[in-house]
Each structure stands twice: as structure tokens, then as C-alpha cells.
Amino acid sequence: MTSPSQKLDELGITLPPVAAPVAAYVPAARFGSQVWTSGQLPFVDGTLAVTGKVGAEVTAEIAKAQSRIAALNALAAAADVAGGIDKITRICKVTVFVASDSSFTGQPGVANGASELFGEVFGDAGVHVRSAVGVAALPLDAPVEIELVCETN
């Protein structure tokens, strides 16, 4: 069986450094055998490459890619608290917030960027429950934000 770290290597993915909080919270915390993350934005090297509302300034395709980046940031935060990516045994719950134009209804497709990543890295253990929610605005005008709950050993 391929470990999550081996799968990341196969995919050519390196977990980013844990993003610094933009307010008064921690990126992730352990509660028993679970790790919960705070909302993670699609930061790359400390900046947002894309800002704006999905369905207006941001296309659904670009937002889906941003969802994948935010999911990597969530994995990095969870792995940091868990003691490494290989300590994460299951992705339990994913919440995806999408800053949406009032007419945009494709939030589930945007959220697939995160869900597909978890499936690629964890296989069957990456199958999870999920909410994809449209919101009026997100911090720093980010198009997406991801929260993650995972099981650890």
C-alpha cells in the first residue's frame, strides 16, 4: 500500500509551509484522534494569486484550481499537528466556502478541486463528507476557503 507521502511524491506535490494565520487563531488543532483545521486560503508563498468572486472576476475552472491549493494548505496544517502526512489515516469532513457572485450556483464543482486531491493522495481513505457553500465574501477577497477534519493514528 502506498503511503500519503509516497503518493505526494508520485504526484510531484510538495506540501507547502503552514500558512501563517491572518487573525487570532491557530491553523490546526488536535481533538482526540482527529485534527481540525481553521479555514485555509489558497496562499502560494504567502500571497493570493487570485482574488474576487467566482462567477464574476474568477471562473469556476480557476476557482477549482484554487480549491486544490487551499486543500494542500489544509493538509499541510493538519500534517503539522498530526506529526506528518503519514499520520493522517482518513479525510472525514471537508467544508468549502466559495465567494460567489449572486448568480453563481456551481459551488460543488469548485469544491471538487479539494475533494479530487484528497482522493488522489489518500485513495479510499480520502472519500469524505462535504459541504460546498456560497458566501458573499471571504478574507482578503479570496475566492475559496477550505476547512478539513481528518482522523489520525
Rank of each mutant, 00 (worst) to 15 (best):
Thr2Phe: 11
Ser3Arg: 13
Pro4Trp: 04
Pro4His: 05
Gln6His: 13
Gln6Glu: 15
Gln6Trp: 11
Gln6Val: 08
Asp9Arg: 12
Leu11Ile: 13
Gly12Trp: 04
Ile13Gln: 09
Leu15Cys: 00
Leu15His: 07
Leu15Arg: 00
Val18Asp: 06
Val22Gly: 03
Ala23Lys: 10
Ala24Asn: 14
Ala24Asp: 15
Tyr25Phe: 15
Pro27Phe: 01
Pro27Met: 05
Ala28Val: 03
Arg30Trp: 08
Phe31Arg: 14
Gly32Val: 05
Ser33Val: 02
Val35Cys: 09
Val35Arg: 03
Trp36Thr: 09
Trp36Gln: 15
Thr37Glu: 11
Leu41Asn: 00
Phe43Asp: 03
Val44Met: 08
Val44Lys: 12
Asp45Gln: 12
Gly46Thr: 07
Leu48Gly: 06
Ala49Pro: 13
Gly52Thr: 06
Lys53Ile: 09
Lys53Phe: 08
Val54Glu: 02
Gly55Ile: 04
Gly55Val: 01
Gly55Pro: 01
Ala56Ile: 01
Glu57Ser: 01
Glu57Ala: 08
Val58Trp: 08
Thr59Gly: 11
Thr59Phe: 07
Thr59Pro: 06
Ile62Asn: 07
Ile62Val: 15
Lys64Gly: 09
Ala65His: 08
Ala65Phe: 01
Ala65Leu: 10
Gln66Trp: 09
Arg68Val: 02
Arg68Trp: 04
Ile69Met: 07
Ile69Thr: 14
Ala70Tyr: 00
Leu72Gly: 08
Leu72Phe: 10
Leu75His: 04
Ala78Tyr: 06
Ala78Ile: 03
Val81Pro: 02
Val81Lys: 10
Ala82Pro: 07
Gly83Met: 05
Ile85Val: 13
Arg90Tyr: 07
Arg90Cys: 01
Arg90Glu: 12
Cys92Ile: 11
Lys93Asn: 14
Lys93Ile: 13
Val94Gln: 04
Thr95Tyr: 00
Val96Thr: 14
Ser100Met: 07
Asp101Thr: 07
Ser103Val: 11
Gly106Glu: 13
Gly106Ser: 08
Gly106Ile: 06
Gly106His: 07
Gln107Gly: 10
Gly109Lys: 11
Gly109Gln: 15
Val110Pro: 05
Ala111Arg: 03
Asn112Glu: 15
Ala114Asn: 04
Ser115Asn: 15
Ser115Gly: 12
Ser115His: 14
Glu116Val: 11
Leu117Val: 04
Leu117Phe: 11
Gly119Lys: 05
Glu120Gln: 15
Val121Trp: 02
Val121Ala: 04
Phe122Glu: 00
Phe122Ala: 01
Gly123His: 09
Asp124Val: 07
Asp124Gly: 03
Ala125Glu: 11
Ala125Asn: 11
Ala125Ser: 12
Val127Glu: 08
His128Tyr: 15
Val129Pro: 01
Arg130Asn: 13
Arg130Asp: 13
Ser131Asp: 12
Val133Tyr: 02
Gly134Asp: 10
Gly134Pro: 10
Ala137Asp: 01
Ala137Cys: 05
Leu138Ser: 08
Leu138Glu: 09
Pro139Asp: 14
Leu140Pro: 01
Leu140Arg: 11
Asp141Val: 05
Pro143Glu: 05
Glu145Leu: 02
Glu145Arg: 14
Glu147Phe: 12
Glu147Pro: 03
Val149Ala: 12
Val149Leu: 11
Cys150Pro: 10
Cys150His: 06
Cys150Val: 13
Glu151Ile: 07
Thr152Glu: 01
Asn153Lys: 13
Asn153Ile: 08
